[in-house]
Amino acid sequence: MIRLIVTRLVLSAVLVVIASLAIFVLMSFVPGDPARTILGANATPDLVARLREQLGLDQPLPVQYGEWLAGVLHGDLGQSVLSGDPVAQLIAVRLPVTLSLLLLSTLAISVIGTVVGLGSAVRGGPLGRLLDTVSLVGLALPSYWVAIVLVALFAVAIRVFPATGYQPFVDGPVPWFLSLVLPVAALSLGGITIVAKQMRDSALDVLGRDYIRVLRASGIRERSIVFKHVLRNAALPSLTVLGITVVGALTGAVFVENVFVLPGLGSLVTQATTSHDLPVVLGVGVVFTLVVIVVNLVVDVLYGVLNPKVRVR
């Protein structure tokens, strides 16, 4: 088990390097000069050259990457081309917003998805068909569109939740929670349906297995069969799907943060992209990569805990 985690971590470090290298190489293709972008079209060539030197842009690309990577290891992600603020600081301010969004969504997706999926597998019939219909609609509607409708419905028309904006957790958990209800709802709808569908399929598969018949034949209570044996065995494939869904929610967060005007990494990276602020894009990229890696690691560890065949090895 520990070996699995260590192997995963080593692999993850390699992945961070590869992912950042990919972004860095892409950066080198950038048309236009960041220094000129910062200083504007009227700047003198002399001034531009000095800024280039200051930003390290006059160095060869491998050196630039090496320096950037060394900086990353010290927590230095460079400076925003646009505002000159350290990227690490920009990210640190906004990270809690995105993480809150992601954690609550993961919770909603896994809990609601499991309950609905297991329920429809065991009860079947109308509940199963309802899930099918809802899941199709959930998949078909783009998350940003759902977000807009939610804003219109709850925040503007019914006024139950704050329409937009974010309340930090330190200012009190209730406002924090209320400010995230609508974004989380918009973000998790698709994921819930995917996980519920997977849960139902694998629960139905498990229910058809021989060992379930043997359990029934030995007079075990149906409740115990469903909540102990079916849940445990159906959780394995659903876990993999949950991991993929959470990684997908990262993409969704970019859209949802924009609609709900949440000051998170998603809205930061959108602004940075629009204004060609590549150090910020790169920095957020590193953070997102780390999040993906952590999610995958957690999935792997949970998988190992749930699956005795992995645990023993």
Binding site: L15, V247, L250, T251, T273, V281, V291, V292, N296
Partner: peptide, 11 residues
């Protein structure tokens, strides 16, 4: 699978 696709796409 570990590369955050959104960021690369935005980049």
């Amino acid at each position: 699978l570990s590369i955050p696709g959104t960021i690369i796409t935005l980049a």
